[in-house]
Design a binder for these strands. Structure first.
Ligand code: DCP
Length: 958
DNA sequence: TAAGCTATCAAG
DNA sequence: CATCGCTTGATAGCTTA
């Protein structure tokens, strides 16, 4: 498996047996207090999971009494005693709310790194032989290893890496090193890159960081001479190349590497791009008026994947032996391509392997060879270019349309060209292509069908087209697929097995087709039945028509999540991935769509295809990104927001698609079009509307915060804006309703309840009624759900700032969704009607919470204090008050904090409001203003509570 | 009536 | 053990302003 598994680290004097290392680290690192024991300690486990403990993320207070302490800390007990005895910085400990173990490890880590630094400094003074190859690595070593943990520790830090003493749930470890691993650990480490120590030693040898994927812990070697019970042995022998699902950090990489459809799609998009670019260049050079090509050639490899894969198996008699390409030789794996020998048995592309084997037991299964497909395709396109046709239109990696005008009308001339081309391609690739040619794209495609395999077919008799078409199944027409065929079949009262041919449609009028399939599709289909098709394949005529319009990532395999955090992490990774694509392709996008596949009610939890999606309903929601961007943090946050708006129960999630559209070219390093605004406007003028949007946003973003503007509008406006959804209001608990009503009455806006504009109701509710109806998911259980919601909110209402933060941790927030089958549909809430509004998106577009540091959060705290004070200052004898725009920005920030589960931070901001109001510094001039602030504080808590309910969480009151 | 949105279909 | 069910574009049909 791993060809490196035998390579032992060179016994290098310089690297191993350095006694000074021991001197620096004392018993600290070499004392093998068992990490295993600690991790299994339940109290530690809880701490490790605690979402609010971000030991590794908080910039450490550099000065701690431990740093000067040189006493031995050989054992955990000793250190803990020490810790308790000293308890030196009481305030800090209290503030960070770390538990005992946590504090211990926190200080331990600091101390460790201090010592590491000292050691490295000392060591590199004597030698500069250590390239910092691990400078971006934070490495944790687990269990018994060879070389042992001390040596690895030294190697890591000498080469610029950070050595991690323990692995917290939120620790920033980049790699876990282990030689052996227990099944329990596999689960524990499933979100980390777990690799063999040879990766370290080999990387050092090569003086560069090597591809870690070559060193994953595939085959265990149990060389520990430990007495183990049979049971344990058996447990340990479980295969370790456990298939990974979407919770794995590298899932996307693995998945795409192996996905045929991913390759097919990206190849196609790349080809499109390439030919589009070329056409653009060509059209700039010569402005000659182009006419439609006289002749269309459709050329395509015969059973492409099968033919190419078979090249690596010279023993196979390709013409007679049935073969197919798929992952593995059994079960629900898809046949991507099968040869014509296999097709005789009824095997076809897209069929599952088990079905194919039923039809053809002697079917031979071959592996994919994506690299080779790409190579053959390259040769194919080179040869097409070589015949210098009028135009080439790439259909796929193995298929193209070619336009020819400048040849004479003799069929023999065309035949000659085709035969030469076929021969050349066969000689160069070892695979056969077929060619169909006619005077339009439709007929060329149908000819190709008749030409296959390994042949040529022409049709140039317009007068005879009826005859040519009459027995063609409609399914073979371009753009006519299963659904349309079904509907036609239904309409014509045909049995489900019978194929619908074109002659069957002679009785169907144009109007009927239009009525059935819409204006475009109906007209097109009617035309096809007469052999008419005016599709133009000449890209050069209008290159801009062929420019890319969207970039998307779809994952409908391996999607199995248990926790919201897993979903969020996955969405972040998808965001990262798609931004990388945007960068690579030189685009920024202004619109983002999230589409989710949700297991259809009643469909089995585990579909027949392993980790497949099974039967699903699709739900999608899109949003404007404000200005064109490819900023990961922004897109990730928006995705998380969209996920919550769509509200698919985590356990039922089976697929995730992300599409970015409204693209603009952006070749610089800028992450958004705004960043290179000047460039953009000089280079070319985008759509008028866009320009305005950008300028507006820039303006707003610059003026809103933190430069407070004098405010005349206050909370009243805000409530108007937020209370548009009557249903949402009604869904709230009574006490909430009363409170809000009172407030509104006091401000004489009670008429809102009657007016409740319809437009906004639809716009802001979680799912449009239309889609709910369509899917038929408006269920009577809604009533129960509502009761659930209310009781949860009541419980949540009891939450106050005084509740210790630990009570909000994982241990008390249960995922309720899978237990109760609760989904978010139909739950409309006050807060959401605000969240869904467009406003939030435009303001914060440059505020990237994903990488917010604690320091920046501190800034927000100070801003808030300042803002409260400011609002009480007098202007023309009146307090300045709170500006609506400021509030929008502030709420936007809170929203993002909540999305990122920074509950503690939200609570502390709420606390700051209270403290500021009580502070004597305030100009005591206005009770209205104070009341507004208290409302805002209440709103923060509401948002928090609502979000917790939304996520299907309930607070355990026990 | 145009524009915006989601859903659906097809292709390879 | 399985398995790698993507990606893009066009179009329909609805709501909204
Ligand atoms: N459901 C499908 C259809 C196609 N392909 C891949 C494998 C094919 O080799 C390649 C080209 O598709 P074609 O439709 O051209 O099919 P083939 O080339 O395999 O056969 P044919 O001779 O019918 O063109 O795309 C796939 O993976 N899954």
């Amino acid at each position: 498996m791993n060809k490196n598994s035998n390579s032992q680290p060179k016994s290098n004097e310089q690297e191993i047996g350095d006694s000074t290392f021991e001197a620096f680290n004392g018993t600290f690192s070499s004392t093998q207090f068992s990490n295993d024991n600690l991790v299994e300690d339940p109290s530690f486990d809880d701490l490790a999971k605690d979402e609010f403990m971000e030991c590794d993320d908080i910039s450490p207070p550099r000065k701690t009494p431990f740093l000067n302490d040189t006493k031995s800390q050989g054992t955990l007990d000793a250190s803990l005693t020490e810790l308790v005895d000293q308890q030196p910085d009481h305030k800090e400990t209290k503030e960070l709310k770390f538990g005992d173990y946590e504090t211990y490890f926190y200080h331990k880590k600091l101390k460790q790194q201090e010592k590491d630094d000292q050691y490295v400094q000392w060591r590199t003074k004597n030698s500069n032989q250590f390239p910092p190859i691990f400078s971006n690595c934070v490495i944790y070593v687990n269990g018994r290893t060879d070389p042992d943990i001390t040596q690895l520790h030294r190697m890591i830090i000498l080469h610029g890496g950070v050595f991690l003493n323990y692995l917290g749930a939120k620790s920033n470890a980049t790699h876990v090193i282990a030689s052996n691993i227990t099944p329990r650990k596999i689960i524990e480490f499933k979100n980390f890159k777990v690799i063999k120590p040879e990766w370290i030693t080999d990387s050092i040898k090569e003086k560069k960081i090597l591809d870690w994927t070559k060193y994953t812990l595939f085959s265990p070697q149990y060389d520990q001479k430990v007495l183990e019970s049979d049971r344990e042995l058996k447990e340990k022998s479980l295969p370790l190349n456990r298939p990974i699902d979407a919770t794995h950090p590298e899932f996307l990489k693995f998945f795409f590497e192996n996905s045929r459809l991913h390759h097919l799609s990206t190849w196609k998009a790349d080809l499109r791009e390439k030919f589009q670019q070329e056409a653009l260049r060509a059209s700039k050079v010569s402005q000659t008026l182009r006419t439609k090509p006289k002749i269309i050639m459709h050329i395509d490899f015969d059973c492409f994947f099968a033919a190419v894969s078979a090249l690596s198996h010279p023993d196979i008699d390709f013409a007679n032996e049935p073969i197919a390409v798929s992952h593995g030789g059994k079960g629900s794996s898809d046949v991507s391509s099968c040869n014509y020998a296999a097709r005789k048995f009824g095997v076809s592309n897209g069929m599952w392997v088990n079905r194919a084997l039923e039809l053809c037991p002697e079917l031979k299964i071959l592996d994919y060879d994506f690299k080779l497909y790409e190579e053959k395709s390259k040769i194919f396109y080179e040869e097409l270019t070589r015949i210098e046709p009028d135009c080439i239109f790439p259909v796929s990696v193995d298929e193209a349309l070619i336009g020819l005008s400048s040849i004479d009308d003799e069929e023999s001339t065309l035949l000659n060209i085709c035969e030469k081309l076929r021969n050349k391609i066969y000689v160069l690739t070892g695979c056969t292509v077929s060619i169909g040619a006619s005077y339009n794209v439709l007929l060329a495609k149908l000819c190709l069908r008749k030409a296959k395999p390994n042949g040529i077919f022409f049709f140039f008799q317009p007068n005879n087209v009826g005859n040519f078409l009459k027995n063609i199944p409609v399914k073979q027409l371009p753009g006519i697929g299963r659904k349309i065929e079904d509907r036609l079949s239904n309409h014509l009262n045909k049995g489900s097995k019978e194929t619908v041919t074109i002659s069957n449609l002679s009785s169907v009028s144009r109007d009927t087709m239009v009525k059935f399939f819409g204006i475009k599709t109906g007209t097109k289909l009617f035309g096809y039945c007469q052999g008419l098709d005016d599709t133009d394949i000449d890209i050069s005529k209008n290159p801009s028509k062929f420019i890319r319009k969207s970039i998307s990532i779809d994952v409908n395999w391996g999607i199995r999540f248990e926790k919201q955090t897993q979903v969020d992490e996955f969405l972040s990774r998808v965001a990262d991935h798609i931004c990388q694509r945007l960068l690579r392709l030189g685009f920024v996008g202004a619109r983002l769509m999230l589409k989710l596949a949700r297991r259809t009610k009643g469909a089995p939890i585990d579909p027949p295809k392993y980790l497949g999606m099974g039967l699903c309903d699709f739900l999608s929601k899109s949003t404007n990104l404000g200005a064109p961007t490819r900023e990961v943090g922004l897109i990730a946050t928006e995705l998380k927001s969209l996920y919550r708006i769509i509200g698919v129960a985590i356990a039922d999630l089976r697929g995730v698609s992300v599409t970015i559209s409204e693209l603009q070219k952006c070749d610089s390093d800028a992450t958004s079009a705004v960043d290179q605004k000047q460039l953009q406007f000089e280079a070319k003028k985008p759509k008028e509307k866009k320009v305005q949007g950008i300028e507006q946003n820039v303006l707003k973003g610059g003026s809103v915060f933190p430069h407070y503007s004098p405010a005349k509008e206050t909370l009243q406006k805000l409530l108007q804006k937020h209370l548009v959804d009557l249903d949402a209001f009604k869904a709230l608990p009574n006490e909430f309703q009363q409170e809000i009503k009172l407030e509104l009455e006091r401000r004489s806006v009670e008429q809102l309840f009657e007016k409740s504009p319809k437009k906004n109701r639809n716009r802001n509710c979680l799912l449009q009624n239309r889609s709910l109806k369509k899917i038929g998911k408006v269920r009577p259980e809604t009533q129960n759900k509502r009761i659930d919601l209310i009781s949860n909110q009541r419980t949540l209402n009891k939450l106050t700032l005084n509740i210790p933060i630990e009570n909000l941790g994982d241990s008390v927030i249960h995922q309720k969704t899978e237990l109760s089958g609760l989904t978010m549909e139909g739950q409309k809430t006050l807060v959401n009607s605000y969240w869904a509004s467009e406003k939030t998106k435009t303001f914060n577009k440059h505020y990237n919470l994903g990488i917010q540091t604690f320091y920046e959060f501190e800034d927000w705290k100070n801003l808030l204090k300042d803002w409260v004070r400011f609002s009480f200052e007098n202007e023309n004898e009146k307090p300045i008050g709170i500006h609506e725009n400021d509030l929008d920005v502030f709420y936007g920030f809170i929203h993002k904090l909540i999305l990122n589960e920074k509950i503690y931070e939200v609570l502390s901001l709420a606390d700051i409001i209270t403290c500021s109001l009580n502070s004597s510094e305030l100009v005591d001039n206005d009770t209205n203003n104070e009341s507004d602030w208290r409302k805002i504080r209440g709103e923060l808590l509401n948002m928090l509570k609502t979000n917790l309910v939304q996520k299907g969480a309930c607070i355990d009151t026990t």
